[in-house]
Design a protein around this nucleic acid. Structure first.
Lengths: 154, 154
DNA sequence: CTCACTGCAAATATTTTGCATCGGA
DNA sequence: TCCGATGCAAAATATTTGCAGTGAG
């Protein structure tokens, strides 16, 4: 929805950090914004970026992702499968988002609602731990697969 | 605390699943229970098990961990560093536990308190997602490092 | 006695790095 | 122009697999 906006924002951030805006970085960021719902791995992103920028190398994608993670533009996440995925931080709210991973169909849905405000406060008070960020994934059965299961039980 | 108890429980589970109780599996499970607070990687666990069972191979440790994960005896977890770690499920409560990962010193602390009862209910109601399990890690600064930081600021 | 299990080494998969070259600022 | 950024290939890690031999049940 606010994708072009985000694209500009991110390029600005890169610029402010004193980094060069190479065509490879542009293409990588652009693809990342376009497919931000997909939770791509480095390899997958590489394949997508290559469509627009065939000269790009996999190492550059890794290096760009590293830079983006340092600038807090993306989060590294991993869903049990040992592959690191990259998740664009939503720029609209300063808030994190959570994931719903369906164990039947493998779909990952995002929840853009901070459910942990109270919990984080409790962690701070009770354990003296200052929370800066979090990773929360629920594993279970998504609405679609639940419906499907119902149908099959008849 | 209830380690020997757990050890027996786990071996019983393996047996019930029709799996052989080889010396390698015994040694692996025993080490896992003994060091259950360490969040070991396969490689680290291998090194530890090797002390008691020098003949064991790394592949066996991987294969044993796979079996244990299938039987829900361990959870796979990963803390952003690309390495899969294995976390013994606490047998005492049926409940999950959460992690506090200190970004300064790298320590991982466990919280054995289910903070998400309300949140999971909300997820079910609002998103139609049936939660079976979750992974929750807070990233931040642990109490120890906070104290250290205070001292250095003086 | 049988077949699941194992060790070892080779194969894969994933990510990082060295280095000569290129090109954005 | 200059130094950061890139591509490529090689290296470093992490994990899986094929296979012949072994031993738990």
């Amino acid at each position: 929805m606010l994708q072009p906006e985000e694209l500009g924002q991110i390029e600005k951030k890169l610029h402010q950090a004193g980094l060069k805006l190479t065509p490879q970085r542009r293409a990588t960021v652009k693809t990342l914004v376009r497919l931000h719902e997909s939770h791509l791995s480095a390899e997958e992103l590489f394949a997508k970026v290559k469509e627009a920028e065939p000269e790009i190398g996999l190492a550059t994608v890794y290096r760009t992702l590293e830079v983006l993670a340092e600038l807090k533009i993306v989060n590294r996440v991993s869903f049990e499968d040992g592959i690191t995925r990259y998740d664009l931080r939503t720029e609209d709210s300063g808030h994190f988002h959570h994931h719903l991973l369906c164990q039947i169909c493998g779909a990952v849905e995002e929840i853009h609602e901070d459910l942990l405000v109270d919990v984080e406060m409790k962690v701070k008070e009770k354990y003296g731990f200052e929370v800066a960020d979090h990773r929360l994934t629920f594993l279970g059965v998504c609405a679609k697969c639940r419906a499907k299961r119902q149908r099959h039980l008849q």
